[in-house]
């Protein structure tokens, strides 16, 4: 069920990227897609009623393996968030420069490249 939610989110993002005419909205769409994937990765490692993947001294290994969630996707998500942040920073700064050059955020008016 939660997987479907993350796919709905992905599709919303894709819809936003493909149909919106405003550069800022396209950037927002990209971010929605990125977060849908992050949610998906977290859900891969999640289990119902799981505990945080930290093993305290009084915890037996069997108990830990049985109840903890998978920590690896969480590490992936941290990396993916950082990458997403890099892309966001670059795209926003690019959007500012585009606004300086063209005086608009509308991609219908930003089309000098053809052929």
């Amino acid at each position: 069920m939660e997987y479907i939610l993350s796919f709905v989110l992905l599709m919303i993002g894709l819809y936003c990227v493909t149909t919106k005419k405003n550069i800022v909205k396209i950037i927002i769409g990209l971010n929605i897609m990125e977060y849908a994937i992050n949610l998906f990765l977290i859900l891969i490692g999640y289990r119902q009623g799981g505990i945080a993947p930290i093993r305290t001294p009084d915890m037996s290994l069997a108990y830990f393996l049985r109840y903890s969630v998978d920590p690896l996707p969480q590490a992936l998500v941290v990396t993916s968030i950082v990458i997403g942040f890099g892309v966001l920073a670059l795209s926003v700064s690019m959007a500012i420069r585009i606004y300086e050059r063209y005086g608009t955020f509308d991609i219908n008016e930003i089309k000098r490249l053809k052929g």
Partner: peptide
């Protein structure tokens, strides 16, 4: 102006493709 336009276009398409690659990696995992 043209360079920024090309770069933005590349960024949007490139990011979408990266997101799909990451989705594939998630499935593989």
């Amino acid at each position: 102006a043209e360079e920024l336009e090309a770069s933005f276009k590349y960024l949007v398409l490139g990011t979408v493709s990266s997101i799909f690659i990451l989705l594939g990696i998630g499935f593989l995992y």
